[in-house]
Structures are given as structure tokens and as C-alpha cells.
């Protein structure tokens, strides 16, 4: 009984984990290239969630088609915030960019509240489900999972096979070396920030496909926390590390949720959040370079 429930939840965890992973790749990409920690990360997820909700409930556009829209809006937001704010802060002390990205997050949240109000939203895109031995998986969740994996694969190809992607890798490794090769490092910064934000906004759409409720201007906070844990799991500067970190995190979160639910007098959902904070602390203590990094 417990085992069945656990396995069922672990399957769900793996599916959610793929989405978590994708939702962290943008954070890792931005940190890897610009060495800027985007504290406003969750707010961009919120933007994606609202895009999915609004397109579906106002225009009847299915969430899969919201993905390219979210990507374009995310890229645009990324370029706007890079050129208006972050460009000046790359060489500044870290606190400056932390405060700036935090403020961008607040700005997005309050703008969303101004437009949509603060109540919780949700949508219902019913396209059937598949029944697995231990659990039932709605097709929307499956689409979101496949979408995440596909985007991760595309990003991998982009990084390894395209000129622009290779330039990004070279800046991650050694920006001084990239400069003497003739890479426009400033341009790579702008492009990486835009792409990182674009991926994050897209992940907001994918997350609503898994959890189509609870869409609200302030929904981003817990996702920022989770993304930090996942990014640290995966080694912070590596988008692929982040993806695998997401898978691991999804499994741990759903697995621990199932087990906590059997403890009497415990609210399991709150405890999983405590558990993820503890994980972050413990990982930082024992392996500050990330669990999945070789060195």
C-alpha cells in the first residue's frame, strides 16, 4: 500500500522533475555566463503562468501554443532588462545585481497584480489521461514533461552545434579567452540573459500544464527557492546539471511528501518545503560545488 503510493508518486515526481529541471536551466545559464544570481527568477515563472492562463481562458489558445508566445515575450523582457539594468551591473559588486534582480521580481509581481488582481486563477484543459499501473497521468502533464525534455535537448544542440551557442560556452569558461578569439562578449551577455529569461517564462507555461491552478502574482516565491536548491544540486553554472538536478529534486520532493503523509499530526506539504531548505543547507555544507559536478 505504502509502496504502491510511493512508486505512483515517484512517477509523478519524475514527470514534475523534468519540468523543474527545465524551470532551472534559465537560472543556471544566466549565472554561468554573467555570474549574476537572478533572485527574481520565480516572478518570470509567474509571467509564463499568466500567459498560459490568459491565452487559454480569454482566447481559447491551448497551452502548447502558448509556449512560443512565452518564449518571445521572455526574450523581449530579457533584452529589455539586460540593456536597461543589468548591463551596468556586471562588473559591480554582487549585492548590486542581487538587489536589481530582486526589484525586477517585485516590479513584475506588482504589475501582474495591477492587471489581473491578486486572486488565484486556474484553467482546465482536459485532453484525457493515461492510466499507469500505480498512478494516473493526465495528458497535459505528459505533454509538459515531453516539452521540457525536448527543450533541454534543443538547448544542448544549440550549445554544442551552433556558433552562438559555442560562443556562450566559451564565455562561461573564460571570458578573457573569448575576447581574444573575437567573441563579442557584451553581445553574448545580452543574448544569454534574454535566453535565460525566455526559458524561464516558457517553464512557467509548462508548470501550469502540470499544476493548472494557483496562478497568482505571488506564486513565484516557492519556485525561486526550489530553483536555487536544484541549481545547487546541479552545480549552479551548468544548465544540464540543472536539468538532472530537477529530476532528482522532483523525485525527492514527491517521495518525501508520500512518506511525510504517513506521519501522524504532520502537514506533509509544509514539511517538504522545510525538507528542501534543509537539502540546500546540507548540500552547501558538504558539496558547495554541487552534487552532480565531477569536481
Amino acid at each position: 500500500m505504502i509502496l504502491e503510493q510511493l512508486i505512483g508518486n515517484l512517477i509523478q515526481g519524475l514527470v514534475l522533475g523534468a519540468i523543474y529541471g527545465m524551470a532551472t536551466m534559465g537560472l543556471s545559464l544566466i549565472f554561468g555566463v554573467l555570474r549574476v544570481v537572478n533572485v527574481g527568477h520565480g516572478a518570470f515563472i509567474m509571467v509564463g503562468a499568466f500567459i498560459a492562463w490568459w491565452l487559454f481562458s480569454a482566447l481559447g489558445v491551448i497551452p502548447i501554443l502558448a509556449i512560443p508566445v512565452a518564449l518571445v515575450i521572455g526574450l523581449a523582457l530579457g533584452f529589455i532588462f539586460y540593456y536597461s539594468v543589468l548591463r551596468r551591473l556586471i562588473k559591480a559588486p554582487e549585492l548590486a545585481s542581487l538587489l536589481a534582480t530582486f526589484s525586477i521580481g517585485v516590479l513584475l509581481e506588482e504589475t501582474a497584480k495591477l492587471i489581473f488582481g491578486s486572486e488565484f486563477r486556474g484553467y482546465n484543459w482536459a485532453v484525457g489521461k493515461i492510466t499507469l499501473p500505480m498512478t494516473v497521468l493526465p495528458m497535459t502533464k505528459l505533454y509538459a514533461c515531453l516539452g521540457s525534455v525536448l527543450i533541454a535537448v534543443l538547448l544542448y544542440i544549440w550549445f554544442n552545434k551552433t556558433r552562438a551557442g559555442t560562443a556562450m560556452r566559451s564565455v562561461v569558461e573564460d571570458s578573457e579567452g573569448a575576447k581574444v578569439c573575437g567573441v563579442n562578449v557584451e553581445g553574448v551577455y545580452a543574448m544569454s540573459f534574454a535566453l535565460g529569461i525566455g526559458l524561464t517564462v516558457v517553464s512557467g507555461v509548462l508548470l501550469t500544464m502540470f499544476i493548472p491552478v494557483g496562478i497568482n502574482p505571488y506564486m513565484g516565491g516557492p519556485y525561486t527557492l526550489k530553483a536555487f536548491v536544484i541549481a545547487v544540486l546541479g552545480g549552479l553554472a551548468s544548465p544540464y546539471g540543472a536539468f538532472f538536478g530537477g529530476l532528482v529534486f522532483g523525485l525527492i520532493e514527491n517521495g518525501s511528501y508520500t512518506l511525510f503523509a504517513f506521519l501522524p499530526g504532520v502537514e506533509p506539504f509544509a514539511l517538504t518545503r522545510f525538507f528542501s531548505c534543509m537539502m540546500l543547507l546540507v548540500i552547501l555544507l558538504i558539496r558547495p560545488t554541487g552534487l552532480l559536478r565531477a569536481k
Binding site: A167, S170, G177, V180
Partner: peptide, 28 residues
């Protein structure tokens, strides 16, 4: 171009990939 002090190679890339990076500009 400059051969910088302290090398600034891309240590995680292969020798070949480093050389290809050198030919990053269009004409090169």
C-alpha cells in the same frame, strides 16, 4: 590578436575545439 598572460584557454574544451574557437570571426 593577443596571446594573453595566464593563457585563458577553454580548459573544458578539447584542443581541437579551442582552435575552432580561434576561428570564430567570419573571415577567420
Amino acid at each position: 590578436t593577443l596571446v594573453p598572460e595566464g593563457k585563458h584557454l577553454f580548459v573544458e574544451m578539447t584542443v581541437h575545439e579551442n582552435l575552432i574557437m580561434g576561428a570564430y570571426r567570419k573571415e577567420a
